[in-house]
Design a protein around this nucleic acid. Structure first.
Length: 480
RNA sequence: GCCCCCAUCGUCUAGAGGCCUAGGACGCCACCCUUUCAAGGUGGAGAUCACCGGUUCGAAUCCGGUUGGGGGCACCA
């Protein structure tokens, strides 16, 4: 896997990494992480940090590569940062130049742009016109004297390239349709298509599993591989993850940063399960799998060819499923970052059973648990007196009901959910109200909200004093 | 424009010539359960398998074409 640190870990990159991981684990191979940081203008170590952190968060581990951002690379072919492998690229570029498979190009961006526009105007394919291929030594000397720094272009052999893709089967391209592309910039910086090929050889990469957006780059890579005398790896191009409108998933139209999902409280287990099924299925009706189970079942050749829309509803569903399978202690620990410190660990552990079935994302707990750490005044400020009214009931009627409830709670044998519920139900019946109607003003008074965790459990956790005080405050509000 | 890839319910998918009057899941609808919200249970709507031809006794599955969609064509990765 070779991410470029030009932004936070993208959902698509995460899925490609996952497939690489599953493939490598399934066949007993090595999963290699290489950082493609040749574009210094766009990449930052901050992004590398984000990428590595989130890959780890998903549970992916690699056999070779940087184990921590900024740390030392481990593996037999270190370093795994392209920015640290410049010597090798230089040497291989020289080889290509010496053998005549590549040549210096002195065209300026302006000139290239003009040519491209002219080609567009005359409906010609937009490719390099080969002008500098025919340069004489004198021409080159003249350009150099002008101060022009030549880029190195690969002279693409005009031949048909075919390869057997792990997922798509036999694919054929005609490289005669390609222009000679730049492999080293004028400033000496080697470019993607070139460094990828050099590194794959140097690192002994046998299988390249990447996004379908690279399918048409592959013939360039193969041409380069042949020119350099390298071994040809096996390629597999996985389908793209799509926006709802079926275009390639993008920041513009979807939430693509893995961090954002993590911050909302998606579980890595759910994300992995979800991502794995975007383009692959075990062929059965089972749908819940751990990473290890996926690795055991994953067959790269069963991966689909068509793109898959990122269906957030399904992710939400899966996340809920995973949350419900967590033990209370585990869920409490995972909930910790989403709740205020004022909510103690002991209280949190007692709260968890009340929340478990109600959470889609961990972050949903923030609102559901807020009533426990808000002050009585804050809670009272959350609602208007109208909110206390059960459907079709007046203020005085509700006041009477709430007064009856208050009295019932005072007589409760213990401040504990079951006892509270029993007395409340009895009071509701005595009052002639349906339980649901009777409970509504209590809920609003105690939590400040119409939606809350189960009422009596909530009151138990809140405690006798605060519950009574909030009930009293609501009563005052109704009298006013 | 050129090249390449793709095509089963709204979405993710099962399906490798007869088991398909196309199965599951999400979402949606209804009902049940129910203290709100959920969760759970039951049921339902939803796909002439993009279309047209062919091969075959038989095609969602094989072949060809059409249409539609997507991706790529940088001194980005």
């Amino acid at each position: 896997m070779a991410p470029s640190p030009t932004g936070p870990l993208h959902i698509g990159t995460a899925r490609t990494s996952l497939y690489n991981y599953l493939f490598a684990r399934h066949v007993g191979g090595a999963f290699v992480l290489r950082v493609e940081d040749t574009d210094a203008a766009r990449g930052t170590s901050e992004w590398e940090q984000d990428i590595i952190d989130n890959l780890h968060w998903l549970g992916l581990s690699w056999d070779e590569g940087p184990q921590v951002a900024g740390g030392e690379d481990i593996g037999p072919h270190a370093p795994y940062h392209q920015s640290q492998r410049m010597d090798r690229y230089g040497a291989e570029a020289d080889r290509l130049l010496a053998s005549g498979r590549a040549y210096h190009c002195f065209c300026t961006p302006l000139e290239l742009d003009a040519v491209r526009r002219e080609q567009e105007r005359t409906h010609q394919p937009p490719r390099y016109n080969g002008r500098c291929l025919a340069l004489t030594d004198a021409d080159r000397a003249a350009f150099a004297a002008e101060g022009r720094r030549p880029a190195l272009r690969f002279a693409v052999p005009p031949e048909k390239i075919r390869f057997d893709d792990l997922i798509r089967g036999e694919v054929e391209f005609d490289n005669a349709l390609l222009g000679d592309f730049v492999i080293v910039r004028g400033d000496g910086m080697p470019l993607y298509h070139f460094v990828v090929v050099v590194d794959d050889e140097a690192m002994g990469i046998t299988h390249v599993v990447r996004g379908e957006d690279h399918l048409s780059n592959t013939p360039k890579h193969i041409a380069l591989i042949r020119a350099l005398g390298y071994r040809e790896p096996i390629f597999g191009h996985i389908p793209l993850i799509l926006n709802p409108d079926r275009t390639k998933m993008s920041k513009r139209k979807s939430q693509t940063a893995m961090t954002a999902y993590r911050e909302q409280g998606y579980l890595p287990e759910a994300m992995v399960n979800f991502l794995a099924f975007l383009g692959w299925s075990p062929g059965t009706e089972e749908e819940i799998f751990t990473l290890a189970e996926l690795a055991a079942r994953f067959e790269i050749t069963d991966v689909h060819k068509a793109g898959a829309v990122f269906d957030k509803d399904r992710l939400d569903y899966l996340n809920g499923v995973y949350i419900r399978t967590l033990t209370d202690a585990d869920l409490a620990a995972r909930l910790r970052p989403f709740l205020p410190n004022a909510l103690g660990d002991e209280l949190l552990l007692r709260l968890v059973p009340l929340l478990k079935e109600r959470l889609v994302r961990l972050a949903d707990a923030t609102e559901l648990a807020a009533f426990l750490t808000e002050t009585d005044a804050q809670v009272a400020a959350l609602y208007e007196s109208d909110l206390l009214l059960a459907k079709g009931r007046s203020g005085p009627e509700t006041e009477a009901a709430l007064t009856a409830a208050q009295a019932a709670f005072r007589a409760a044998p213990a401040w504990e959910a079951e006892a509270l519920e029993a007395v409340a139900r009895a009071a509701a019946e005595a009052h002639g109200w349906k339980a649901g109607d009777f409970f509504r003003p209590i809920r609003v008074a105690v939590t400040g909200r119409m939606v809350s965790p189960p009422l009596f459990g909530s009151m138990e956790l809140l405690g006798r004093e605060q519950s009574r005080a909030r009930l009293e405050a609501a009563l005052e509000r109704l009298r006013a």
